[in-house]
């Protein structure tokens, strides 16, 4: 801190404290305290009747890890999040690169358009996917109308539909992350590569892609975390047939009213995400070096 601050008179300090106190109190009450409560809850027990008993035991965690279903949902969650994030990346990358490079007069409008879905409620977009992918949706209507298929193809209420919907909901975040990272991408470097004899695809592989690796890593991490904890999309597009950590946490908490189990699973998910992120970050750092 600057010397200016050290010399600050008592009155200035009091003003500062008064400015910040409401936020401190509020977030202490609605963020810190509930999170501590969540941590504590995971160590309570659930009796055979389903009633919660205050305790300090690992029983909830034990039954969580003994249940093979936990491993299955974990795998579902990680794999689905990975595929959805990858899909979002593959789709968002060309769009972000286009927005970065275009000299169109409508560039800022196009950028807004690319992230505008973020401003539309997630429920609305899920409904849109239902209308597109449902048995009587646009795609099935087109498939059957053209005589390609006779029966509706199952595109939704399964892992495919959830992955697609999730990828689309992640794309605006991915685009923003990529665009922020593309600032490092100097057009002159790509041009230099071309004048040195590299055809466009080689320029992409040897210059564009390596220079955007940091942006890709960042976007991927951000979206993967978002995907792991996404609830609305899997809930509505999964139609109860897609089992993920997020849906299980909600079911434990609301449907089964088994709070210790919900809390334990939530902590487990949190740790899992942190570990995966740390591992991925370490891996890419090694690869970059």
């Amino acid at each position: 801190m600057s010397g200016r601050q050290r010399e600050q008179p008592l009155r200035g300090r009091l003003t500062g404290l008064a400015l910040i106190a409401p936020a401190l109190v509020l977030l202490g009450a609605i963020y810190l305290w509930p999170m501590l409560g969540l941590g504590r809850m995971a160590f309570n027990e659930t009796g055979s009747t389903g009633a919660m008993a205050p305790a300090l035991s690992l029983a909830t965690f034990r039954s969580l890890f003994e249940d093979p279903f936990t491993l299955e949902t974990t795998w579902n969650s990680v794999w689905l999040s990975f595929v959805a994030t990858l899909l979002a990346l593959v789709l968002a990358y060309p769009l972000a690169l286009f927005l970065h490079r275009t000299q169109s007069r409508f560039r800022s409008l196009l950028t807004v358009l690319a992230v505008a879905p973020m401003l539309v409620s997630g429920v609305v977009r899920v409904f849109g996917w239902l209308a597109l992918l449902g048995d009587r949706g646009l795609i099935n209507a087109a498939l059957m109308g053209s005589g390609l298929t006779a029966q509706p193809t199952r595109l939704v209420y399964n892992y495919f539909g959830v992955t697609l919907g999730l990828a689309e909901s992640l794309m605006p975040y991915m685009i923003l992350a990529l665009l922020a990272g593309f600032g490092r991408l100097d057009r002159a470097c790509e041009e230099a590569a071309a004048t040195l004899g590299a055809p466009p695809w080689r320029v992409f592989l040897r210059v564009t892609l390596p220079l955007t690796v940091p942006a890709i890593v960042l976007g991927f991490l951000l979206c993967f975390v978002l995907a792991m904890s996404a609830y609305i999309t899997p809930k509505l597009l999964g139609g109860g047939r897609v089992f993920l950590l997020a849906t299980e946490i909600f079911d434990h908490a609301i449907t089964n009213a088994n709070w210790p189990a919900a809390a334990a699973l939530a902590l487990y998910t949190l740790v899992l995400v942190l570990l995966l992120v740390a591992a991925y970050a370490a891996l890419t750092r090694r690869a970059e070096a």
């Binding site: 789709l91 968002a92 060309p94 769009l95 690169l97 286009f98 927005l99 490079r101 275009t102 000299q103 169109s104 358009l113 690319a114 879905p117 539309v120 609305v124 977009r125 899920v126 409904f127 849109g128 996917w129 209308a131 597109l132 919907g165 689309e168 794309m171 605006p172």
Partner: peptide, 21 residues
């Protein structure tokens, strides 16, 4: 600018992105 290929790819992505809405 962005070139025709990238432009076409971007247009396609816009379709996916905006189709549900």
């Amino acid at each position: 600018g962005a070139g025709p290929w990238l432009g076409a790819a971007a247009a396609l992505v816009y379709v996916v992105l905006l189709a549900p809405v």
